[in-house]
Design a protein around this nucleic acid. Sequence first.
DNA 1: CTGAAAGCGCTTACAG
DNA 2: CTGAAAGCGCTTACAG
Lengths: 344, 344
Amino acid sequence: VELDTVPRRHRPTMRDVAALAGVGIKTVSRVVNGAPTVAPDLVQRVRAAADELGYRPNLTAASLRRSGGRTHTIGLLLEDVSNPFSSAVHRAVEDYARERGVLVLSGSLDADPQRERDLTRTLIDRRVDGLIVMPAGRDHRYLVVEQQAGTALVFIDREPCPLLADTVVSDNRGGARRAVAHLLRTGSRTVAYFGDDLALPTARQRFLGFQDAVSAAGLGRGASRARHGLRTAAQARAAALDVLAGDRPDALFTSRDLVTTGVVEALHGLGLQHRAPLVGFDDLPLAGLLRPGLTTMAQRPAEIGRLAAQRLFARIGGDRSPPSVHVVATRLVVRGSGEILLGR
Amino acid sequence: VELDTVPRRHRPTMRDVAALAGVGIKTVSRVVNGAPTVAPDLVQRVRAAADELGYRPNLTAASLRRSGGRTHTIGLLLEDVSNPFSSAVHRAVEDYARERGVLVLSGSLDADPQRERDLTRTLIDRRVDGLIVMPAGRDHRYLVVEQQAGTALVFIDREPCPLLADTVVSDNRGGARRAVAHLLRTGSRTVAYFGDDLALPTARQRFLGFQDAVSAAGLGRGASRARHGLRTAAQARAAALDVLAGDRPDALFTSRDLVTTGVVEALHGLGLQHRAPLVGFDDLPLAGLLRPGLTTMAQRPAEIGRLAAQRLFARIGGDRSPPSVHVVATRLVVRGSGEILLGR
DNA sequence: CTGAAAGCGCTTACAG
DNA sequence: CTGAAAGCGCTTACAG
């Protein structure tokens, strides 16, 4: 019967290599780390011994003693590593880190604040050099101690709450405003908003942007209506069917990817896709293949990831400037659904 | 002027907690690890001291000495953390690992064998307990030593080459065969194949499956034609435009997501989407919103990730059974494009 | 139940 | 240029 956990087979250590090469352990350390002050013949012997034993240095042991104590590891907490936005951020962070010899430990929070705290703690206990967090919770007081202890911290998508830290966010309000302003150029006089829970900062900002545009257009009261709290495509679809069954609004604005998917499903189901102008926040894969093509206000996840990583590495490198909030512009992708002209 | 790398501020250690609580360091260790044999008043004092100092245990230091020497970390090497297939695998692996208190270090290989070797080595030097690899290269001899040293190894998507290790793959050949068999039920007598480089094992298997189905249908020579080496949607689009401009085949089979996207673009561009039956290998987001809906042979990335993680943890736990190859069934998703009946 | 000593694999600081 | 000693933060193995 096997044990639940079995000890690893012995891996050769510097000690073993030193013994085989007939040198001191410090000489092996020098060769492994490419120190220039080792006699060529010793370098040869150490290399040969290391190869023969299949020696590989233990980087975690090395960083334990090494001055600075850096692990060359960062943590990345995302909403879900498998969603398109999160994973595009992830890739950009990985690329930036890789160029600097740093590895990424990632985790999915699924909008669960408890998970955020647990995973943050776990990553800190592994002594990551820094942490990029797409927050699930609203209260980040638990991170104050960590920040003081010198863990670099950068937030994305949402600002931390009673904490000052670098943050990289999309221009949610401005983007939504521009999207809806674009939508109103179709001649629409009434427009429906479909979005997630208003308690979510991103949803709130986008709704504010929606209202900004409606006000700026000088449309009267009753020109807009809104459905909030839509968490899944199915819920969004149901909400859209409901809204479209009543006093149908001229145009539709959807505040995030899943919601857009559901609303588009509803439109296609009713055969209204060529008559009701629609712009969605967040770009969608295949958006260009739909008929009409889907006009979206796209975020720039790769840019967000790159900027966040850049800030994080600056902090890790000792930057002590005041925390900054970086707002990343969104980008209108015109494909047809947002440009359906209403003949009036 | 700041240094490039600045030492972290001092973090309290067990020593500091022990001094403040007026106990031995081993007692702190016991409290931190929840050992049952500590007097309640000492537990209180240690807890209070730890909280006051903001103490957090250093897990990497702990695992250095701990018997077994496990780091409770695994490595996951994917084609690209941001592509839908890779990231769905990633999420499944994360979930399995999380339940077991294990963190995931991931990396993107971008089909670069050199990167595969480099990243593998880096992860091993960090002493991950195991490694799940979606291989970029074809020669995995460099891993033999590591496998012997006791690093658990599982491959996904493709078998390792001169190495015996657990592998989890999709039923590429069978899936392609079933997809094309389904496609031929439309009454199509000629069918075109669009795919990636035949040197890629997955592409080769899918092409073989395509040929299996064509042969089984008893269609004569010249019933099929094939375009290989399509690496991007744009290339696939161009290839499809070219093929469709000539002696147009009745039906189309595309061997992976990017290729499907390009070919669908071409069909829509020519207005042929309702006349040319199409089935694509790999499911696509929004496939159901296209007109006609896109019929696909979907892989099960979450299932692949779960099985790979399960195998890996079994190996880490001491399983010494012979390496196995697990073939995961694909699943036909009928949405319309593959069911266009040709009136003959 | 508690703690001083030794050690995990490596690097630092220091002699020679 | 080389290496023995001390130490990184913790756990193991062992006394008391």
